[in-house]
Design a protein around this nucleic acid. Structure first.
Length: 112
DNA sequence: AGATTGACTAACC
DNA sequence: AGGTTAGCCAATC
């Protein structure tokens, strides 16, 4: 309603394409994606992800912050949507603490 | 075309 | 340990 969808830009397409490569049970960070995309701004990545026009096809829930905290989901940085993200990850084998910190050996996909 | 925004980070205080 | 500042960069206003 508020804003009509628009065709994804080239940059966004690259982001979605990248996260699609993340296997189930693994995660990556905004920064890691940034390196893969040669983009020095993780924030720009986050912005691309928040729009996420491709629902489950682009597993944006597998992207977390560099410090291990959960990051955001569906436009929010806390609340209901975040809970959903946590649950999704847990079902995929990524155990998180209730605070959003990853409590297992991190299985980062991208990363140096 | 210029200013602002933001699912980020790192550096400082 | 927690709050602020500064840098980043694509999208949006």
């Amino acid at each position: 309603m508020p804003k009509p969808d628009r065709p994804p830009t080239e940059f966004e397409t690259r982001v979605y394409d990248a996260i699609r490569l993340i296997p189930k049970g693994k995660v990556t960070t905004y920064k890691g994606l940034g390196q893969y995309l040669s983009c020095g701004s993780a924030q720009a990545i986050g912005q691309a992800l928040k729009r996420n026009p491709f629902a489950p096809e682009a597993p944006c829930h597998r992207v977390v912050r560099t410090d291990g905290s959960i990051g955001g989901f569906n436009g929010q940085t806390g609340g209901k949507e975040i809970s959903r993200k946590l649950r999704l990850l847990k079902e995929e084998g990524v155990t998180l603490s209730e605070k959003g910190l990853i409590a297992v050996e991190l299985l980062y996909f991208f990363e140096t």
